[in-house]
């Protein structure tokens, strides 16, 4: 593995499978009386969050703490960041404090890349979501959830599994990271969205696209609904919320057309009644709550593989 996790495209198939199998071991920790491992004792993980986040920050914090690392939370509100400090000066501060890993969430696409490659810090940088670009640990936890549910009936891999990612692909870092990672793992991804919510250049992602939700989901093995990110919208992307919901929302009627084994996913936070109805979100097919549990295990695996040894774990795909 590389020293930083900035993009889902940085992961080879061997890397990604190592994260999944490691996460599987981490997940069994939840059944033990003492939910703690000593692997990162004495290491410091800084959560640097320039954008609001609940589950990702808490998930990283729980993951680091279960591995016995010291965690420092740094959020934009109530810190020098709101006084106008630059990313560089913040990074130099973190470096001076001796951070071993920086988990960064930033509103600007590419901020984690800048932090990792500018020479400001020596620590590993983990991208926890940058703008509309990438969110690799979310993609890993989504892949892990699919692998747990779909793997056993498919020879333990996601090869050839059909994954539909539905909704606001344009503003979604989750969709991009998932498309990249799932392709690495051999799955067939179809992005379903209105034409206005598909990004320019989506044809280079190596995925199918469709405007017709009803035509795609009966063949899918997993359906991932995306939130409509109204805070990032400054124009008319669709006529009304109700029309969007009618054409691209997952309701009970559409859910009835799914195959028996198909799972329904959502990276959260979800807007019930918009992209997904309450009866679907609370149904047996929904693995949305499990995604959160798996998020901690996957982030533990990532932190362990990056920081657990003298250098990140070696996989067969590495140039040594």
């Amino acid at each position: 593995m590389k020293r930083h996790l900035l993009s889902a495209a940085d992961l080879t198939r061997e890397d990604a499978e190592l994260v999944l199998s490691t996460a599987d071991e981490m997940r069994s920790l939840a059944d033990r009386p003492i939910k703690k491992l000593p692997a990162l004792r004495g290491r410091t993980v800084v959560n640097l969050f320039f954008e609001d986040s609940t589950r990702t920050r808490i998930s990283f914090e729980a993951a680091a703490k279960r591995l016995s690392a010291d965690v420092i939370n740094f959020s934009a509100k109530g810190s020098s960041l709101s006084k106008g400090e630059s990313l560089k000066d913040t990074a130099l501060t973190l470096e001076a404090m001796g951070a071993d890993a920086v988990v960064i969430r930033h509103g600007a696409s590419g901020a984690p890349h800048r932090l990792a490659h500018s020479g400001w810090v020596r620590s590993s940088v983990v991208n926890a979501g940058d703008g509309t670009h990438e969110h690799p640990t979310q993609a890993l936890l989504d892949a892990f959830t699919m692998w747990r549910h779909l793997g056993p009936r498919n020879g333990g891999t996601l090869d050839g599994q059909r994954i539909a990612i539905v909704g606001d692909v344009l503003h979604s870092r989750v969709a991009r990271s998932n498309a990249l990672l799932l392709r690495t793992l051999g799955a067939e991804v179809t992005l379903v969205a209105p034409p206005t919510l598909l990004p320019v250049g989506v044809d280079t992602w190596g995925v199918e696209t469709s405007y017709d939700l009803d035509g795609v989901i009966p063949k899918a093995d997993a359906v991932m609904m995306l939130r409509v990110q109204r805070e990032r919208m400054n124009g008319g992307f669709f006529p009304t919320a109700r029309e969007y919901s009618r054409r691209y929302g997952l309701d009970g009627r559409r859910m009835a057309t799914l195959q028996d084994h198909t799972i329904v996913m959502h990276p959260g936070p979800m807007v019930r009644g918009m992209e997904i109805t309450a009866d679907v979100a609370d149904s047996d097919r929904s693995v949305i709550v499990e995604q959160v549990t798996n998020g901690v295990a996957v982030r533990m695996a990532v932190l362990y593989l990056l920081l657990g040894g003298s250098e990140p774990a070696h996989t067969e795909g590495d140039d040594l």
Binding site: L18, S21, T22, E25, M26, S28, A39, Y304, L305, L306, L307, G308, G309, S310, E311, P312, A313, H314
Partner: peptide, 12 residues
């Protein structure tokens, strides 16, 4: 643990 690259976990 710290002297070598991060190692693959085995099942417990």
């Amino acid at each position: 643990l710290r002297l070598k690259p991060a190692r693959t976990l085995m099942p417990t």
